[in-house]
Design a protein around this nucleic acid. Structure first.
Length: 293
DNA sequence: CTCACATGTTAAG
DNA sequence: TTAACCTGTGAGC
């Protein structure tokens, strides 16, 4: 699940749950025992994300740095009464009187200094979800894109060019602007890039708001109009709430323009959506709609 | 039930 | 370029 929207939403959930409190920290699975011992009982200052990287600041200039990778999850639950038992391989658990957060399957979990945080962030491109990037982010990315012979599809996935875009947003945003994924960065028009960037800002914000990737214009409106409540959702009769999005209302099956639609008809022109393996990831696009841009 | 695959990244070959 | 890592889900039997 983790593209940039997931990490920003998670940072918000962790911040709401733990900032200003001093959660107990443990590693039920046993692979982060030393780190958990250092965090145990330390007050949390704040949590934030940059691209797909999560940083939780604790007292004493100690930062928890997490990268979820492809399959990692960090569930934040609200509970009343008894602390729910850890289920599965929980590498790190944070728990205060009201909330518990369980981290599983992450690629990277480490405790680092503020200098290390700066070093990580300095290697990342502008993040469309960061307020300080919205104004000049397009220009920063453009400086790399317009000189590059690499396909725009590669550049969009490169976290040093733009931070937070993953395989779904890449495919969808290129379709939305009818951009050929194979077109070299240097052949992209500046106005086209600015439109792509602006769209990423909007799409990722929608992703944070709704807790899932929604890229089809009509669906965004439908979901909003359905009085969708993306906040803490009570799970049936358990007294536990999860910081997870409610499922879409029944009639609204999740749909994309091109992602994972290989062989199905393009929603615009009807020609079959194509797929190719590029650098170990699957790329989806419409060969007819996405041609000369 | 088993198995392929996934919204990601790094390191080895 | 390929394998490896780690967990959850959904398709297929």
């Amino acid at each position: 699940m983790p593209e940039g929207h997931t990490l920003h939403r998670l940072a918000g959930a962790l911040d709401a749950a733990f900032a200003g409190s001093a959660p107990a920290a443990s590693s039920p699975q046993g692979r982060f025992v030393t780190g958990a011992a250092r965090l145990d009982g330390l007050p949390v200052v704040s949590a934030q994300a940059w691209g797909k990287h999560l940083f939780v600041e604790f007292d004493g200039a100690t930062y928890l740095h997490v990268h979820l990778g492809l399959i990692g999850t960090f569930d934040v639950l609200r509970y009343a009464g008894v602390l729910p038992a850890a289920v599965g391989a929980v590498r790190l658990r944070l728990a205060n009187d009201t909330h518990v957060a369980d981290l599983r399957g992450a690629t990277l979990v480490e405790l680092v200094t503020p200098e290390h945080v700066d070093a990580v962030v300095s290697r990342l491109g502008p993040d469309p979800l960061r307020a300080e990037c919205v104004e000049h982010g397009a220009d920063l990315a453009w400086a790399k894109i317009h000189r590059s012979a690499r396909p725009i599809a590669d550049l969009l996935m490169d976290q040093q060019v733009v931070a937070g875009v993953g395989n779904v947003y890449r495919a969808e945003v290129l379709f939305r602007h009818r951009v050929d994924p194979h077109r070299p960065g240097r052949e992209i028009r500046r106005s086209t890039w600015e439109a792509l960037w602006g769209d990423l800002v909007q799409l990722l914000r929608i992703g944070v708001e709704l807790g899932q990737i929604v890229t089809m214009a009509d669906q965004v409106h439908e979901v909003r109009d359905a009085a969708y409540d993306p906040g803490l959702v009570p799970e049936a009769a358990s007294g536990v709430s999860a910081w997870r999005p409610k499922p879409l209302p029944g009639a609204l099956e999740r749909r994309y323009y091109v992602y994972k639609r290989h062989g199905e008809p393009c929603r615009e022109c009807g020609s079959r959506i194509r797929m190719a393996d590029v650098a170990g990831r699957r790329l989806y696009w419409c060969g007819r709609c996405q041609r000369r841009r």
